[in-house]
Design a protein around this nucleic acid. Structure first.
Lengths: 262, 262
DNA sequence: GTTTTCGTTTCATTATTTAAAACAACATTT
DNA sequence: AAATGTTGTTTTAAATAATGAAACGAAAAC
């Protein structure tokens, strides 16, 4: 395990759970030696990524992480662009809306607007979404580089609920259907009782960089609603894509897919 | 130089300048060996803090930095709390408003709302503000732990403009005045022609965690405006402090200062 | 009053990191 | 067409940084 991997895993641990943690607690969580953990924390503090309370000696994530995120936003205004659109979509549909971005770690949920209804779907920010079992993942794969799907379906496909589809061929079918339709439909593949629709967010190259999704309790969704929710999510996602790329992005991927912009 | 320091400085460089950079360019910027730079980038990519474009091999900051920032926001909702208040203050005064947060690296500008007027003050996000030469710094020191001021005035005090006050005793006077007044006044100490007022944002312990400031071109500010702008920034800053701590925070610091909440 | 847990420091051992050199793959220039 | 200067990448022995066990006083818990 490289030193930077250790340092970052420390940051990840600091981000989870309690806002402030003790050295011993952190050392236990990451399973490094106390002395090692401390040295890493000191190095991270020097860079502003970690802060320590003067009195209680508790550690927390520092302003440096926000600073890096702000710099990234200045270069690639993903959140700034997507959040207002997602908020508007949530207001219009009344359901939980969330969007995710793809990285080497997978599809990561980066913003969630929870429905105001009592019976709602909760999605944690920062969660890694399985590509094969979520509407977001299917929508993403439908418009991503072919290699992403091959890689995702190559490994073992975890079954999260009795409804999870784990057959690679069947998943490819779902992906094809989503590509043709413009949006994907997730029927309790990841969490029981949750129904969702998702559409891809396209980057400058015309391939998917993330996905926008609406999630609702299955009980509230009539079959007839699927189409209107799907249309809404497609429209919002393409609005984000347009703002992100500065133009009307045309979908493009390696799968001889000539479908036009969604 | 520790490995994590190197890795973070690489992230910093990635955050500056062009959104995407080549390996050779990055190696030059941070002055590490090409091979070293690459190994660090690979390690950071594995953690999602750096991303690489598949085709062009260009590097950029990854979604991981946003993820860490979102986790921090979930634990300590500084931006979420402060941004709406800063926006409202900017709308009300019509001038540039910015706020900063303190860390081991100094006072860092984390959000800026630029005035809509043509002649306005621009403040870059992510900039480190000198404590002795800015209204924000003076306001911060007035309500921070005494050691912060001692450390800040101990080193060499850079002069940024002909108006910069670099005499430690004189600066302590300004800080005392700010403490008594509740807000600080910055008169072209950092940038020529810029006038500003700032008030501290207080954390749970009653000490300053950051500062909120209004900055305007000197030509637009009449002496009579100072008081009203000062009152406005104090009110907005204390509003942020209250929301942040969940209660009406009373100022407290090590300098036998018994001033009540600002 | 005793015991445990805390953060911190030290230091010999170990493991990682380093940078120079050589590589093929492209672009540009000659 | 050949030469030159890029690029990213891999390999090495040598240098350096990271490690973890042990010991410390202080503070907290019992």
């Amino acid at each position: 395990m490289s030193t930077v991997a250790k340092a970052v895993s420390l940051l990840e641990v600091l981000g989870q759970g309690e806002p402030e943690r003790t050295l011993a607690d952190l050392a236990r969580s990451v399973d490094f030696d106390k002395a090692t953990t401390r040295r890493l924390l000191l190095a991270l503090m020097e860079q502003g990524l970690v802060e320590q309370d003067g009195g209680s000696r508790l550690y927390r994530l520092g302003i440096g992480v926000a600073r890096l995120a702000l710099m990234r936003e200045a270069q690639f205004p993903f959140l700034r662009t997507a959040i207002p659109v997602a908020d508007a979509l949530a207001a219009r549909t009344g359901e939980t809306v969330h969007f995710s971005e793809h990285s080497s770690r997978g599809l990561i949920s980066v913003h969630v607007v929870e429905s105001s209804k009592a019976n709602r779907v909760a999605v944690p920010v920062g969660e890694t979404l399985p590509l094969h079992a979520t509407a977001s993942g299917i929508a993403f794969m439908a418009f991503a580089d072919r290699r992403v799907m091959d890689a995702a379906l190559g490994g073992k496909l975890v079954s999260y609920t009795p409804h999870t589809v784990t057959n690679p061929a069947a998943i490819r079918e779902l992906v094809s259907a989503a590509r043709a339709r413009g949006y994907s439909i997730g029927a309790q593949g990841y969490e029981d009782g949750v129904f969702s629709v998702a559409a891809p967010i396209l980057g400058v190259r015309g391939t998917a960089v993330g996905a926008l999704a609406i999630a609702a309790p299955r009980a509230r969704i009539e079959p007839a609603d699927t189409e209107s929710l799907g249309a809404a999510v497609v429209e919002a996602a393409s609005q984000i894509s347009e703002r992100l790329t500065g133009r009307r992005t045309t979908a493009a991927n390696d799968q001889s897919n000539s479908r036009k912009s969604v």
